[in-house]
Simulated assay, not measured.
Amino acid sequence: MKLIGIEEHFLTQEVKNAWSAISLEAADPSVAFHGGPLEKRLVDLSQERIALMDETGLDVQVLSLTTPALHDLGRESVDLARRANDAVAEAIARHPNRFQGLATLPVTMPDEAALELERCVRTLGFKGTMLCGRVGNRNLDHLDLLPIFQSAAALHAPVLLHPRAPDKVVRDAYYSGFSPMVDAAFACFGLGWHYDAGIQFLRLALAGHFDRFPDLQVILGHWGELVLFYAERIANMDRVSGLQQPMMTYFRRNLYVTASGMFMPHYLEQAARIVGYDRLLFSTDYPYQYRPGGDARRFLNECGLDQAAACAFAHGNWERLTAGLSTAS
């Protein structure tokens, strides 16, 4: 059974240098998490990565630039995005049966980002894009960023919403008071990342993006970035939202959910209860959640799904989602 991981990350030295040039680590503590052995795995787009894919049982990685991507860079991000996407396209050309791509976008330049997404889908054959939460001080629902979602909707290109560190004011209020290392972990992979990503999805819904673009498809990792576990409470916002549809409709019509290496069958069941088995996607969150011992393949075999549902989870749902991409120039 083919196994496709749709949230698998990379980093280029050029992007890391751009982060350093603006001292981004002072504003986003997650930047410091990309060093050492993780950096070695992130920058490799060849044999070592493929060997680790084979070891865990993954056939295909859908590559995306790791958080915080280009969300804090200015005009220079236009060329940075193009070069990062071209590097991914070259890796796919070398290993067409092992890699696919999600577009890296210069999101601080929304019109240019929309054009780059179109280039990546129509020319490079990418499968969608990944966004990493806020762009500067703007949430993703800000009207300035609407061209990106217009482009994604027109292309039928899914948008993966990836976590990023909360704003410093939020970190200081809720995730501080311990050691610097504990504060950073608490604000990022401990919990803060996931609240931030889930909130970005809810903001898109409450801002009416799924009314404007009924076919827009968004992906949340980590079994729905917490919000699926409060779907019943979130549904109470129907009383005041003024939206065209109930909140549960957006969960079931506009949202896909992926595992991100959190291999827990009861989380899978909760996600399926809200969005349906036809909206579950597989991912390992490489290299952050990588564990040796055939971990990915073992979870697929032991997650409790029947043959048809397991095939859909492993590859079928992703292939169906991306089959409708608008690739005509």
Rank of each mutant, 00 (worst) to 15 (best):
L3I: 14
G5K: 10
I6F: 05
I6H: 01
E7M: 06
F10P: 01
T12N: 05
V15H: 00
N17P: 00
W19L: 02
W19H: 06
A21E: 12
A21N: 14
A21I: 04
L24D: 04
E25K: 14
P29A: 08
G36F: 02
P37L: 06
V43N: 00
D44S: 03
I50S: 08
L52Q: 15
M53F: 11
M53C: 04
E55V: 13
L58M: 15
L58C: 15
L65H: 01
L65N: 02
T67E: 00
P68L: 06
L70I: 05
D72R: 13
D79Q: 15
N85D: 03
V88G: 02
I92H: 04
A93K: 13
F99G: 08
L102T: 03
A103T: 09
P110Y: 06
A113E: 10
E116D: 09
E116S: 10
L117W: 11
C120P: 06
V121S: 05
G125L: 00
G125Q: 00
F126V: 07
K127D: 15
G128A: 03
M130N: 01
L131Y: 11
L131S: 05
L131D: 00
G133M: 12
R138G: 01
L143Q: 10
D144Q: 15
D144V: 14
L146P: 00
A152P: 06
H156E: 03
P158G: 09
L161S: 07
H162R: 02
A165E: 08
P166V: 10
P166H: 11
P166N: 09
P166A: 03
R171L: 02
D172S: 15
Y175A: 12
S176T: 09
S179C: 05
P180Y: 10
V182R: 07
A185P: 00
A187K: 13
C188V: 10
G190M: 10
A197P: 09
R203F: 00
G208F: 05
F213A: 02
L216I: 04
L216K: 14
Q217K: 15
Q217M: 12
I219T: 02
W223T: 03
W223Q: 13
Y230D: 14
A231P: 01
E232P: 01
M237E: 06
D238V: 08
S241R: 00
S241N: 14
L243S: 04
Q245N: 13
M247P: 01
Y256Q: 01
Y256P: 01
V257Y: 09
G261V: 02
M262F: 13
L268M: 12
E269T: 13
R273W: 09
I274S: 11
G276E: 00
P287C: 09
Q289L: 09
Q289S: 09
R298D: 05
E302C: 06
C311D: 12
A312T: 07
F313M: 06
G316F: 05
G316R: 13
G316I: 05
R320T: 12
L321E: 01
A323H: 07
A323P: 06
G324I: 04
L325F: 02
A328T: 14
A328D: 12
A328W: 10
